[in-house]
């Protein structure tokens, strides 16, 4: 029972980071109507920036994290300008292909710049292991869980209370109507991508001490992010959180009770089960497609 609780907390901790990444992915999906395949790789680039600033340059963590967020947001905006913007008016399949191309570029460019080895990332939140009954809790994991929850709440506030957040919701409901009501599409686009990249960077920094930093870390995490987005319901914000947490839980529990070799496969099984029963995702709304 204690072991089960501990694994659950482990899974929720991973899941909260998947949820943050998925939220970033879903913001792009709902505002831009495009699936951003390169989300995991953007996270990887952010983690490498943090590694450079925090470990190599030895800056204090409260300087290193904002700096890496800024750098990564700039990278994302450059990509958006160069690769995505020319394709907005074309078919969605081409845009999807383009994001696959971008993810290949990022992954391999990172390999050229930072090398193929995996780097250890020191813990940001040191501290002694906490015992509650017979459950052992690593402070780092609790912090990650806490940061995840705070970020979700902040995002929720941002979307509901601020002008920009409301504008983003309006755009996701009806693009042309929002544009006619005076929403500046270019600004909204840039804010969307910027927020998504910023959240991905934070998640990358949080995950870095656990999974290490390497150039292909975006592959498996990116796949899990897309799985959580689909499981929770594409474009749905509560769905992203639910999907992320579920994927994290399934991965941790499967790895503990079945076998760790097939760790990557459990989320896929979850995906298939959900898709077979609810193709629109658990909290997703069914879309009516018209000719």
């Amino acid at each position: 029972m204690n072991l089960f609780l501990q694994i659950c907390i482990q899974g929720l901790m991973l899941g909260s980071m998947y949820a943050i990444l998925t939220l970033g992915y879903n913001i792009i999906y709902s505002t831009m109507g495009m699936a951003h395949y390169a989300q995991g790789d953007i996270m990887m680039v952010g983690a490498f920036f943090a590694l450079d600033f925090f470990v190599t340059m030895d800056l204090p963590i409260y300087v290193a994290i904002p700096l890496s967020v800024i750098c990564n947001v700039l990278v994302m905006l450059v990509i958006e300008r160069l690769a995505y913007r020319p394709l907005y008016s074309r078919s969605r399949t081409l845009l999807l292909l383009c994001t696959i191309g971008v993810s290949t570029v990022l992954r391999n460019a990172a390999q050229l710049i930072w090398g193929t080895q995996s780097f250890n990332f020191p813990t940001i939140f040191p501290g002694d292991i906490i015992h509650i009954g017979e459950v052992y809790l690593v402070p780092q994991n609790l912090w990650i869980l806490g940061v995840g929850v705070v970020m979700m709440l902040l995002l929720n506030l941002f979307m509901k209370k601020t002008k920009v957040g409301r504008a983003m919701q309006a755009v996701s409901m009806n693009r042309s109507a929002a544009a006619l009501m005076g929403v500046n599409m270019q600004t909204i686009t840039m804010i969307t991508y910027g927020m998504s990249a910023g959240m991905a960077t934070l998640a990358g920094v949080m995950l870095a001490p656990i999974v290490k930093v390497y150039s292909t870390m975006g592959v498996s995490i990116g796949a899990k992010v897309m799985i959580s987005a689909v499981v929770g319901g594409m474009g749905s914000m509560p769905g992203a959180i639910l999907g992320g947490l579920l994927v994290g839980l399934v991965e941790a529990l499967g790895g503990m009770y079945i076998s760790t070799t097939f760790k990557e496969a459990y989320p896929v099984v979850l995906l298939l089960v959900v898709l077979l029963n609810r193709p629109q995702g658990i909290l997703g709304r069914k879309k009516v497609v018209k000719v």
Binding site: R92, A223, M226, I227, V230, L275
Partner: peptide, 21 residues
């Protein structure tokens, strides 16, 4: 038959991962 676009990409990526595992 039921999926297209990104949904199909996610499922086929998962298929490839499982087969490779």
């Amino acid at each position: 038959c039921k999926l297209s676009g990104i949904f199909l990409v996610v499922v086929t990526t998962g298929f490839n991962t499982v087969v490779n595992l």
